[in-house]
């Protein structure tokens, strides 16, 4: 680690790093602390992603200040994480709906089709109805 940086550069990096560390810690603490599975989805997918984004931006600035060239690798990882975190949250919410929530507990969808998480249940119900009609 080189220390031949101006004071203001170190302060900028320290602000980014400390903010990122607090966000990461809050995200993981929320994973333990929050009361039910759907609220627990929020803490890691939002706070922790922001924390990692802060660390990656600090890393980008560090290599710009220390070596003098701006690299965009970190921005690529940040972009990737910011794109994938909502997808992960969506998949986990659907898995959670599938395991912990009954089909009748959710409000009805607006279209003709059932909620995607319960599509297989609905298909089985229709198949059973048709089988009982045929019998």
């Amino acid at each position: 680690m080189s220390t031949d940086m101006a004071l203001w550069q170190e302060i900028v990096l320290a602000v980014f790093l400390v903010t990122a560390g607090i966000f990461g810690l809050v995200g993981s603490f929320g994973l333990i602390k929050l009361p039910d599975p759907m609220t627990r989805l929020h803490a890691p997918t939002k706070a922790t992603t922001l924390g990692v984004g802060g660390v990656l931006i600090a890393s980008m600035l560090y290599f710009f200040f220390a070596k003098g060239h701006l690299s965009f690798h970190e921005l690529m990882i940040t972009l990737f994480l910011f794109l994938t975190a909502p997808i992960t949250a969506h998949f986990l919410a659907k898995a959670n709906l599938h395991t912990n929530v009954a089909r009748d507990e959710v409000p009805p969808p607006t279209g003709d089709r059932p909620w995607a998480g319960f599509e297989s249940d609905e298909a089985r119900r229709i198949a059973e109805e048709q089988a009982s009609k045929g019998a």
């Binding site: 220390t3 940086m5 302060i11 790093l17 560390g21 990461g24 660390v55």
Partner: peptide, 11 residues
């Protein structure tokens, strides 16, 4: 110096 402490804290 500040950066060292910030790195330790964040890690």
């Amino acid at each position: 110096m500040i950066l060292t402490y910030a790195l330790i804290f964040t890690t």
